[in-house]
Amino acid sequence: RQGFVPAAYVKKLDSGTGKELVLALYDYQEKSPREVTMKKGDILTLLNSTNKDWWKVEVN
């Protein structure tokens, strides 16, 4: 499932696989259909980080 999360809630990881991955630093509950819920410690695939406030991710 793809959607947006606050950029301040995730940290980029060095995956070494060519995929950009991020680590969820905090729990986040989606507040609109365009967002996704994540739990602290989740590893997500980063799809787009051009917006400084909201990053598009895919929940694996």
Score class of each variant (00 low, 15 high):
L21M: 14
S15R: 12
L23N: 02
V5L: 03
L13E: 04
K52C: 09
D14V: 13
R34K: 12
A8L: 11
L25D: 01
S49I: 07
S49H: 09
F4S: 03
Y26G: 05
I43M: 07
K19G: 09
G16V: 13
M38Q: 02
L13F: 11
V5K: 01
T17L: 13
W55Y: 07
L46W: 02
N51E: 10
Y26F: 15
Y28R: 02
G3E: 02
K31N: 10
N48E: 15
K56T: 07
F4C: 11
D27F: 04
R1K: 13
S49D: 14
E30V: 07
K31A: 10
A24F: 01
A7T: 06
T37Q: 05
G18A: 11
E58I: 08
M38P: 00
D42F: 04
K40C: 06
E20W: 12
V22Q: 01
T17F: 13
K40N: 04
N51I: 05
D42R: 02
N51W: 07
L25K: 06
Q29R: 11
L23H: 05
W54C: 06
E30Y: 04
T37G: 10
N48H: 07
T45S: 08
Q29G: 07
G3P: 00
K52G: 08
A7Y: 03
V22W: 08
K31F: 05
S15N: 13
L44F: 11
E35I: 03
E58P: 00
Q2R: 15
R34H: 13
N51F: 08
Y9I: 06
Y26M: 13
Y28F: 07
S15F: 11
G18K: 12
I43W: 04
L44C: 08
K40L: 05
G16N: 15
Q29V: 15
V59D: 06
T45F: 13
L46R: 00
V59T: 15
T17W: 12
V57A: 01
E58K: 08
L25P: 00
R1E: 05
D42Y: 05
S49G: 09
K39N: 08
L46N: 00
L47D: 01
L44N: 02
A24Q: 01
D53P: 02
V57E: 00
P6M: 04
L44E: 00
V36N: 02
W55P: 01
S32H: 12
E35H: 07
V10I: 06
K19M: 11
L47F: 03
V57R: 00
Y28I: 02
A7K: 06
V36S: 02
K56M: 15
K31W: 04
N48I: 08
L13S: 04
S32W: 06
V22E: 00
Q2M: 08
S32L: 06
V57F: 01
V5I: 08
T50F: 09
V57D: 01
G18H: 12
T17G: 15
S49C: 11
F4K: 03
N60M: 15
Y9A: 11
P6E: 01
K39F: 10
L44T: 01
K31M: 11
A7G: 04
L44D: 00
V5N: 01
E30N: 08
V5G: 01
D14H: 13
K40Y: 04
